[in-house]
Amino acid sequence: MGLTLEQRRELRRRKDRRDRIVGILAPTFTFVLLLAAWEALVVWLEIPTWQIPRPSSVFAVMFGSFGEFLPHIIRSYSTIIIAFACASVVGVALAAILTNFKALGVALTPYINMLCTTPVITLVPLLLLMFGFGQWVLILAVTLQAFPILNMNASTGFNNVETLKLELMGSLRATRVQTFRHCILPASLPNVFTGMKLSGIFATTACVSSEFSGGNRGLGARIIAYTQFMKMDKAFACIFFVAVIGLFLYTLTSYLETRVVKWKI
């Protein structure tokens, strides 16, 4: 241990940088390989393009007909992002409240869990019938599906802080708010971020499946429409656009985690 703190940190930073480069290159390589295999299989086996399109034609359509997709991309992405933001706030805030007021937690937790295990798509036709096809109805539905999983993860974190760590706050006679801010929340951040990653996945799934069930706007609705007319290249283009937003939310959360949880080596 002849190294100073700064030297050790520099070594770690260098290692992190190496890991990051490998972390980008390796998956990209896999991606290209998979697409190449897909393209080759479709050509060799002479699969009709109305069954499975070639990735090259999917990409061509994605960029060539981008204007056609754009309003639906905006619609779906905005639904997902707004609902994800709402779910993040509601999920963490509710977990903080429910773990602090035990009786309320016991009273509500089973129903929040039920909300999590019930597919929101079962509610959407009902909601659309009641409130019409406005975007906010979908935002509401997607939020309902996305926040409980975050709430569950955050609650698990908030409830399982080491006794010794809480005792320190107890010995200083910290208030509930101080205890939450200095001890419980930072100790649970890994759980919160896991919850957010899952919440992003839930939001994406919920949005697309909600769009399946009604209306003619959004990527989900387009997938149904294009499939009916056997425009498989366009349907796949929509699937790719959905994949992009899902991946974006996941990557964003992971990035936030590394920035916020910087004490984890």
């Binding site: 010794l164 760590k165 320190l168 004490w263």
Partner: peptide, 25 residues
């Protein structure tokens, strides 16, 4: 109060840990 283990909060630097009682008080 001094605990059996150092009981430092891993999310705070050493100085922040030492200053924690001052913040709480």
């Amino acid at each position: 109060f001094i605990f059996q283990q150092p009981n430092m909060y891993p999310w705070m630097t050493v100085r922040e840990n030492v200053m924690l009682p001052l913040r709480v008080f």
